[in-house]
Write a protein that binds this DNA or RNA. Structure first.
Lengths: 161, 161
DNA sequence: TATTGTTATACTCTATAACTATA
DNA sequence: TATAGTTATAGAGTATAACAATA
């Protein structure tokens, strides 16, 4: 939230570690896990910021995105894929449903399950949000070339799944 | 790998996406930001798990690691580098200090500041924790070759700082 | 007057257990 | 008996404001 480099001296590089460059050689600073956490914190913060104009957060966007995929995920599937508790999924879908962005339908194959599908309004919102996030990603990955971004994506896929 | 359609009940989650492979082609699943979040969630969870034997969490380890660097960071610097609020740093250092892992010293150049340094006990704990995290990282990055891990590290450094 | 560390507080996120309706 | 969704609740993590000591 605090990315206004309010008063840091002219040497600030908007990188989030102004004034503490002396720790860059630290063992911690070289660990993939630490770097991953920092990268996601940065991306998540920036993403939330640009999505705020649309009244969304990245977590809500991710659910909307699956709802907009046309694959009609159940809430259970949503939770598995997004690594969320069933109770968290309820709150998430409640929010999107109240907004008119998604619809809950009873799964005819199993009346316990609810399939989630984006409404027309939700599809439009999803498109806007996706555009906003693309711009956000373009900023947070500014130090990488197109090739490097594709490289990164491929590596992350191997880890994440 | 993650293609095993194991029928094992929802007990443990090795790959984290069993049964929802049909969402892998989704736009969301290709976004760097989403993949980064998943990668860090996985690494963080596994890291916390192996550190639990030592009574540590990754967040606490990161502070201990800087304290063990010999660079005598102030609490303010710790907060900047780890992206934590000053009040969070207080709680973090309180914990490590009560454990006898770090020491608070008044900074002679500015008596308002406290420099943090690991004790001998803290150095030993840090070494153990580092070894545990290396094994953890070795597991979470099992799908990557040595070269790919170095590639990933280099790319993440460009983003994180 | 501004800053470091501290305390207190509130707010968000996440995790757990119990309940319902279906299977 | 087991599972999907729901509710309530507690815990962890995070953010904000006020204060004392020092600059």
């Amino acid at each position: 939230m605090s990315l206004s480099a309010a008063k840091t001296p002219a040497t600030s590089s908007m990188s989030g570690a102004e004034g503490v460059e002396r720790f860059l050689g630290t063992e911690l600073a070289g660990q993939v896990q630490f770097l991953t956490a920092r990268a996601r914190a940065k991306g998540s913060a920036h993403g939330n910021q640009v999505l705020a104009e649309l009244g969304l957060k990245v977590r809500q966007y991710s659910a909307l995105s699956l709802a907009a995929s046309g694959l009609k995920p159940t809430q259970r599937e949503l939770g598995e894929f997004l690594d969320l508790d069933p109770s968290q999924v309820v709150a998430l879908i409640d929010f999107l449903e109240r907004r008119g962005a998604v619809r809950r339908d009873i799964d005819p194959r199993d009346r316990r399950s609810r399939t989630i599908m984006a409404t027309d309004e939700g599809l439009e919102l999803h498109e806007q949000a996706t555009r906003a996030l693309r711009k956000s990603e373009d900023i947070t990955l500014a130090n990488l070339t197109r090739g490097e971004r594709e490289q990164l994506r491929a590596l992350l896929v191997k880890i994440a799944f």
